[in-house]
């Protein structure tokens, strides 16, 4: 019922608040995963952006990127991918030094996590943040992704290389790849 009409606004806020509270209060790993996925999916709907910002969900998602639980990382990264489409959320993520956390996710073993990270990096690109995002290490990583078996990763990396940086930067990164390599985007070994 709260999906329609103009009177649903505050109700939705309360619901999201309940989710955030449950996430913070529960000790159950499973419940946390479910709530996190819920919140990340709510971030898909632009109508919730304002509420999620008020509840500091962008920071909650960023916190998840350094968790050991791969599900937490995947859902948090998915949520950031959804949120970062909104310029205001993008600015919050940038202010919280999100770029380096997102770049770390390029090394995840999970494809979804990596895909979300690439899309998020594209969303986070502004004139100010561009130098950090188009770091040679990241570009080399994208060049490797563009050779990936996975068409989705290949395509996203291609879009990144074409839209987010200059041809010179790409050429430079290619040259560097002949010499020294960076570890960004190389999946971490399984334990």
């Amino acid at each position: 019922m709260w999906r329609k009409g103009s009177c649903e606004g505050s109700d939705r806020f309360e619901y999201l608040q309940t989710l955030v509270t449950e996430f913070q209060d529960t000790d159950s790993e499973e419940a946390k995963e479910q709530v996190l996925a819920n919140l990340a999916n709510f971030a898909y709907d632009p109508k919730n952006m304002e509420h999620l910002r008020q509840l500091q969900v962008p920071d909650l998602f960023l916190d998840m990127l350094t968790e050991d639980n791969e599900n937490f990382v995947e859902f948090g990264m998915g949520g950031l991918c959804n949120l970062s489409m909104d310029p205001e959320c993008r600015d919050i993520i940038l202010q919280s030094n999100g770029i380096s956390l997102v770049i770390n996710c390029l090394s995840s073993q999970r494809e979804e996590t990596v895909l979300s990270a690439v899309t998020t990096l594209m969303n986070l690109t502004t004139p100010l943040s561009r130098p950090e995002i188009t770091d040679p290490g990241v570009l080399q990583c994208m060049l490797r992704f563009s050779l990936s078996q996975s068409p989705r990763l290949r395509n996203l990396a291609a879009v990144f290389l074409q839209d987010c940086c200059t041809e010179e930067q790409v050429a430079q990164a290619e040259q560097q790849m002949q010499g020294q390599q960076t570890a960004v985007g190389i999946p971490l070994p399984k334990d």
């Binding site: 304002e50 395509n155 996203l156």
Partner: peptide, 30 residues
């Protein structure tokens, strides 16, 4: 999505960004 071309993927992302911005602005205006 694995059947998308690079161009498809680019358009998809651009459309999405545009849609989000439009919706957020509309909501703020509302």
């Amino acid at each position: 999505p694995e059947y998308e071309t690079v161009e498809d993927t680019r358009h998809k992302l651009q459309d999405r960004r545009r849609y989000v911005i439009r919706t957020v602005q509309n909501k703020a205006r509302e």
